[in-house]
Amino acid sequence: MSITLDLNSDLGEGFGVWQLGDDLALLKIVTSANVACGFHGGDPTIMRRVCAEAVRRDVSVGAHVGYRDLAGFGRRAMDIEPDRLADDVLYQLAALDGIARAEGGRVRYVKPHGALYNRTVTDQAQAAAVVAAVAAYDPGLPILGLPGSQLLRQAEEAGLTAEREAFADRGYRPDGSLAKRGSPGALVTDPAEVAERCVRMATTGRVTAVDGSSVTVNPRSLCVHGDTPGAVELARQVRGALQDAGVRLAAFS
């Protein structure tokens, strides 16, 4: 049976004169782009440039929503009231969708970023806030997240489409959560190792955790972070390895 998989990357995360990652190069490789919406990274000019190139290359645009935390790149834990968080997510989603539509496209899905992504794995209230914002804007938009997370559970309960994501370049704990950045094995940077991991996840639905155990992920989409060292070469090798293994690459949305 043939396997179809999405390959996504977090893009548009620079700000003003500060560039982060090579968005245009990655857009030649991935099938979906998680575009920063101005809260953890990105600005209107960057958002428009990435959306325009994504539309030109037929790459699916996703809203990469996060906490309002430019200084911490959205990776700092923050306590935000659920109602306010829902408003913040709605604001980011609507802004990116407006820009994408101006370039002939539209937002096709939503994926939280950084600390918000990790928080919604276990925090029911924060997960519910993200789901409420997406449902209010467009209940037809899928939400991309970690398998078994509160976010995906609540998305399904609300009647939204929940899509499972796995990470090409991040280490996993035995419980299926991501290893904390800075901890041993949290970031995988060797291109050959990353490519082998991705082929295994695509063909067997499993990945080896930092303690050597096997974790079930069954991804619909694989993420290569745009700010990982050597991200373009990583993504290129992942794409090539998946295609060599007979995996068809296509956007899930």
Results as ranks from 00 to 15, higher is better:
M1H: 13
S2V: 12
I3P: 06
I3D: 08
L7R: 04
N8M: 00
L11R: 03
G12S: 12
G14S: 12
D22T: 08
D23V: 06
L24Y: 01
A25Y: 05
L26M: 15
L27R: 02
I29K: 04
T31F: 00
T31Q: 02
T31E: 02
S32M: 03
S32R: 01
A36K: 03
G38C: 09
H40S: 12
H40M: 10
H40R: 11
G41V: 04
G42V: 00
G42A: 10
D43K: 13
I46N: 01
I46R: 01
M47V: 07
R48T: 14
R48M: 13
C51F: 09
E53C: 09
V55Y: 00
R56C: 08
R57E: 10
D58T: 04
V61G: 00
V61M: 02
V61F: 00
A63Q: 02
H64W: 09
L70N: 12
G72N: 06
F73I: 09
A77D: 15
M78W: 08
A86T: 07
D87T: 10
D87Y: 06
V89C: 13
V89N: 07
V89I: 15
Q92P: 10
L93N: 00
L93V: 01
A102S: 15
A102C: 13
G105E: 02
R108E: 14
K111E: 00
A115L: 13
L116K: 07
Y117G: 00
R119L: 15
Q124V: 15
A125R: 05
A127H: 01
A128F: 05
V130Y: 01
V131N: 01
A133W: 06
Y137K: 06
D138T: 03
I143K: 02
I143W: 01
I143R: 01
L144A: 08
Q150M: 14
L152A: 08
L152M: 11
L152S: 06
R153H: 14
R153M: 11
Q154P: 04
E156L: 07
E156W: 03
E157N: 10
E157I: 04
A158M: 03
E163V: 14
E165D: 10
F167L: 05
F167H: 02
F167W: 05
A168K: 05
D169I: 09
G171P: 12
Y172A: 11
P174R: 13
P174Q: 14
G176A: 14
A179K: 11
G185S: 08
V188K: 06
P191S: 05
P191R: 04
V194Q: 11
V194P: 14
R197P: 12
C198Q: 11
V199M: 10
M201Q: 14
M201L: 12
T203N: 08
V207T: 12
D211V: 07
S213N: 06
S213R: 13
V215F: 10
N218Q: 14
L222Q: 07
L222K: 04
C223K: 06
G226C: 12
T228A: 15
T228D: 12
G230F: 13
V232T: 14
Q237S: 13
V238D: 06
G240T: 14
A241Q: 08
Q243A: 11
D244P: 02
A245T: 10
A245M: 08
G246V: 11
R248Y: 06
L249A: 07
F252K: 00
